[in-house]
Design a protein around this nucleic acid. Structure first.
Lengths: 252, 252
DNA sequence: GGGACGGTTCGGCGGGCGCCGAAACGTCGC
DNA sequence: GCGACGTTTCGGCGCCCGCCGAACCGTCCC
């Protein structure tokens, strides 16, 4: 596959919307994505097949459902990198911001294009507070954690972001382990900064960021609310944040 | 600009070919690019305008020439990242590998599509030996230098590639200076590994890689040959390589 | 000044592709 | 078994866009 073919996969507004939505790291059904992007199910089906063929998405069939998710962290990184390049990417709420007047019946103006399970405003404020960004933490929670690991010297930003010896010890104490090849050239970097859409500041990505998020979910420090990417910090989570990172209750 | 619009800029084989060619870090004229891609000058002109509007390319007009180059290192990184994603990108010689039979008269089969100043085979072997990759060194020279800085401990790959204290001292001795903001989040990383097309191994990119390349050109350790990206190591350069990095004369 | 040359603008053409609706298929639940 | 539902396949439509050649403009050089 050539560079042009790869880019062409992302060059369609509908497919781009799919990928952006899937950046939350979860598996969506074909129908959900179709409603989200405001296209017919048949259209969505074709787009998904192309994205899967191209290796950007992975599918998992369950009964009459077709679940689909990003093929891996590299894909998420790629899409983030591309998105970071768009000077004024979309509206503040994260909607991709479709070009007006492409095809009749596709303007997202009247009514929310795809009501999900939480009411729109509730969902947005919940996501601004805490959410997943592919496989790590984002929103105010994300940048708060990012600031904390930096302030406590677990991560340094000298010569590019990296985990310190202190950070490695901290992980060991925590009982969490990085994948063996993390950080090796070609493999996933240990620490990556990822621009946060809502906060307009960096939060923590990479293998370390993913490990933190997974640990937090495993130990029930955070839990999913609704069907989207929004998270809630549990009481256990608040305690862990305070004890492990010196983070206060968390800004509401 | 949305993600889709950005991707659309790279989604055309001709525009992709332009960007790939410009990855050598030099400024090309519109006509050179047109011949290189095998399209009419008028077609190239339109493509260039779109790429410039999109912020991927920068132009510099000189007399009746329109020189054009990548807008910055971020663009080069972006294109490299995307290229790294294509499993079997192009033919071994680095030609983008156009999809066959798109439009009559565009098949690159018969004859070299755009003879540049060196004969094709000469050019290819020269480029395999030493060339620029955007603004840093590539080819056998590039990976050799990359290996050397790693072996001498100037760069480490623990927790992601980074310059060591030894490396900083080495730079100071050399009288070379990194840009002040290099490595800060959002700015250009100090050390980046970049997959070498010909060697299929990593060479040195990032601000450090660019600094080395610029220094080498400034001090006449390497010089351009031909009008392409190929480089030749000068006698001064061989001496510098030996004394500064312990690299032997350089594989022919 | 005049011719050569690089680049641009404009019309016009053709193909690709994204869209939909209708019909069909498979699964699930009653 | 039957209807509901999620998904897919197929035809058909319309637009977008990449291509070219012709004409034109500005620069360079003799």
């Amino acid at each position: 596959m050539s560079l042009a073919r790869l880019a062409a996969l992302l060059a369609d507004p509908t497919r781009a919307a799919f990928c952006t939505a899937l950046l939350d790291g979860r598996a969506w059904t074909a129908g959900e994505l179709a409603r989200h992007a405001g296209v017919a199910p048949s259209t969505a089906s074709e787009h998904l097949s192309r994205l899967i063929d191209g290796g950007l998405l992975a599918e998992e069939r369950q009964g009459r459902h077709r679940y689909v998710r990003l093929a891996g962290p590299e894909v998420a990184t790629l899409i983030e990198d591309l998105s970071a390049f768009t000077p004024l990417s979309g509206t503040p709420d994260g909607t991709p911001g479709r070009t007006p007047g492409r095809t009749p019946g596709r303007t997202p103006a009247a009514g929310s294009p795809a009501p999900r399970s939480l009411r729109e405003s509730t969902r947005l404020s919940a996501e601004a507070r805490a959410r997943t960004c592919y496989d790590h933490l984002a929103g105010r929670l994300g940048v708060t954690v990012g600031d904390a690991v930096l302030a406590r010297g677990l991560v340094t930003e000298e010569d590019g972001p990296a985990l310190t010896a202190l950070g490695r010890a901290w992980l060991t104490d925590l009982g969490a382990e990085l994948p063996p090849r993390a950080g090796r050239p070609g493999a996933r970097p240990v620490v990556r900064t990822c621009l946060d859409w809502t906060e307009r500041r960096n939060h923590l990505g990479g293998a370390f960021g993913a490990l933190l998020c997974r640990t937090a979910l495993d130990r029930n420090w955070v839990e999913r609310i609704g069907s989207g990417r929004a998270l809630r910090v549990t009481p256990d989570g608040e305690r862990a944040l305070r004890e492990l990172l010196g983070v206060e209750p968390l800004p509401a």
